[in-house]
Simulated scan of single mutants.
Amino acid sequence: MNSLKIRFTENEMKNEKTPAEQLVFGTKFTDHMFVADYTEGTGWHDHRIVPYQALTLDPSASILHYGQTVFEGMKAYLSEDGIVRLFRPEQNMKRMNISADRLSMPQIEEELALEALKQLLEIDKEWIPKEQGTSLYIRPFMIATEAHLGVSASKTYTFIIIMSPVGSYYKEGIHPVKILVESEYVRAVAGGTGTAKTAGNYASSLKAQEVADREGYAQVLWLDGLERKYIEEVGSMNVFFKIDGEVVTPALNGSILDGITRKSIIELLKYWGVPITERKVSMEEIREAFLNGKLDEAFGTGTAAVISPIGELRWKGELFYVNNGETGELSQKLYETLTGIQRGVIEDPFGWVVELKK
């Protein structure tokens, strides 16, 4: 994007808002969306905020056949003081460009994309729910639009930001979940697209998740694609383990997404003086820690849940129970601290929060 001039078309048909207690993730959307187009040789152009509406694509558009698309997930929070807050939004835009580069897609101008988001939030501010635990989920994404069936990078793209009010992820406090360790399917391999936030990674995870659902498990724990022994992610989240007082998380290895919540957890633990190590973590190590009574806590991290405690793991028929199936002290403290910083009720010593003017 090469200009801050954004054309605005107001939505004359306002959507009906859903009460906070009835909100379902990703099913209700605000009145407007931001759109910009890209043409090779011209760059980004026609920046606009328009009524939320369906897209028109040629049946041969590249996105429909070769999956050239990247996206991000972030949230806006409206606090009791009336200030709208974003949590590390510059990291989302930076990561989107990393994803775009991997998919041979054009770079967005990060500062201008953030400015467009701020203008969109100002227009649809009334859609941000105020109730405890609620937020406005923000989905920036880019798709390839060239009408061409040749296997090559598209010459045209569209960048869009849509927003959806979402309820509290945990209705009655955070609860540990049961996790099935996946030994047949893999999420990604080094050199693939695991480090990119792109649609194909999520499509390829659905089969394993169906199996987990049938067997009564909330998520899948992914192992590496080569040896099927080292832990990578849990569902669509990064994963942490507290073993004998030390927190460990799989090191970024070319197939693991560099999560913004993950990054924040690591920085927060270091700030507190809690031992934290990024390295390879095998399922055999987790098994041994459980058998020796040293598996203190385990949790996933991501934008939607922030912290999702793990209460049980099943691997090759064996069950490993974590902290007696209860939320651990560290998991609870991390959740309360991060959500408190996000909502402006706890001091932000890191400068993570971006406040929008009233």
Results as ranks from 00 to 15, higher is better:
Val354Trp: 13
Met163Leu: 12
Leu330Asn: 02
Gln219Ser: 09
Asp46Gln: 11
Lys125Asp: 10
Thr134Trp: 01
Lys155Gln: 13
His175Leu: 13
Glu122Ile: 12
Lys197Ser: 04
Lys197Trp: 03
Gly340Leu: 09
Tyr157Asp: 04
Thr339Gln: 03
Gly26Glu: 07
Gln68Cys: 09
Ala298His: 04
Ser60Trp: 10
Glu326Ile: 06
Lys14Leu: 15
Pro176Ile: 06
Gly192Arg: 03
Glu326Asp: 11
Gly254Asn: 10
Gln132Gly: 06
Glu12Ile: 12
Tyr157Ser: 05
Thr156Ile: 09
Ala100His: 07
Glu329Val: 12
Ala304Trp: 00
Leu57Glu: 07
Lys207His: 14
Ile231Lys: 03
Gly192Asn: 06
Gly235Gln: 02
Ser99His: 00
Gln332Phe: 11
Met33His: 00
Gly311Asp: 02
Thr301Gly: 15
Asp258Cys: 14
Gly300Thr: 04
Trp352Thr: 00
Pro165Met: 04
Gly216Val: 01
Ile179Lys: 01
Tyr335Arg: 07
Lys358Thr: 13
Lys263Ser: 13
Ile179Trp: 00
Glu16His: 12
Ala20Thr: 13
Ser255Phe: 07
Ser204Thr: 13
Pro106Ser: 14
Phe8Met: 12
Leu149Asn: 13
Val345Met: 11
Val186Arg: 05
Glu182Ser: 09
Arg95Thr: 08
Ala289Arg: 01
Asn97Pro: 08
Lys5Val: 12
Lys171Ile: 08
Thr261Ile: 10
Tyr335Met: 03
Pro106His: 08
Glu40Cys: 09
Gly293Cys: 06
Phe240Met: 04
Gly300Lys: 00
Leu223Phe: 02
Trp44Cys: 02
Ala304Phe: 03
Glu146Asn: 11
Asn201Met: 06
Arg48Ile: 06
